[in-house]
Design a protein around this nucleic acid. Structure first.
Length: 201
DNA sequence: CATTAGATCGTCT
DNA sequence: GACGATCTAATGA
């Protein structure tokens, strides 16, 4: 065990910044997390998969904190979330980007289209491929093999901005619920200098 | 570097 | 039946 369950029992908005710099490991590849997005549950967050309540797909988002929520999208991509908040509350952090710190050869072999090492885990779907995370692992405990997650002991320097890739009425991108470590080349290139707005919560 | 189009299918309405 | 919490290749400045 490399993290306390209590670490993820808080709101994703609080866990987000403190998770930056964490090391996520899966089947021979380790990544230092450099960018995440918070999604808070059920009815309050139009951008969340759980906005309209519990379904088969998003059910692990309601599960125990510190577990994996993996989903399939755009007909070809799998993305990974870390479940936050107490069990029963749908909240999570989409892991958007990271730097490969171990198993880089294996990561390269999984991401043959990647031209540079900076691109190996830049973007949520790419990161999932680099780590070799499969959709079938949805719901897995990140504190148990083949996963491992080491959370930082101190708060890293970070920035906030609007979430990316969210559309629809109500504008799920309205709030600065994206967190990243400045100066990291692995952060998503999209909307690099977003306007920072007030956090409504 | 910036913008754009196409790919592709599970999930929910 | 419509639409993604996206990525890549291609094109133009």
């Amino acid at each position: 065990m490399t993290f306390d369950r209590a670490f993820f029992e808080r709101s994703a908005l609080d866990v987000g910044p403190s998770l930056l710099g964490a090391i996520l490991t899966h089947h021979g590849v380790s990544v230092r997390i450099t960018e995440v997005e918070a999604y808070i549950g059920d009815g309050v967050d139009p951008g969340s998969h759980a906005f309209r309540g519990r379904t088969r797909r998003n059910s692990s988002l309601y599960g125990p904190p510190g577990h994996l929520y993996a989903y399939f999208t755009y007909g070809m991509h799998t993305c990974a979330n870390i479940v936050c908040a107490p069990e029963g509350t749908a909240s999570g952090l989409l892991v958007r980007a990271g730097t490969v710190v171990d198993g880089i050869e294996l990561a390269r072999s999984r991401r043959l289209t990647s031209r540079t090492d900076d691109d190996l885990a830049r973007g949520p779907a790419r990161l999932t491929v680099a780590l070799g995370i499969h959709l079938a692992e949805d719901g897995s405990d990140l504190n148990q093999p083949p996963f491992d997650l080491v959370v930082p002991s101190s708060q890293a320097d970070y920035r906030t901005g609007p979430r990316t890739g969210i559309s629809g009425p109500g504008g799920g991108a309205a709030y600065p619920w994206r967190f990243w470590i400045p100066g990291e080349r692995s952060v998503s290139p999209y909307k690099k200098s977003p306007k920072v707005e007030q956090n409504p919560l």
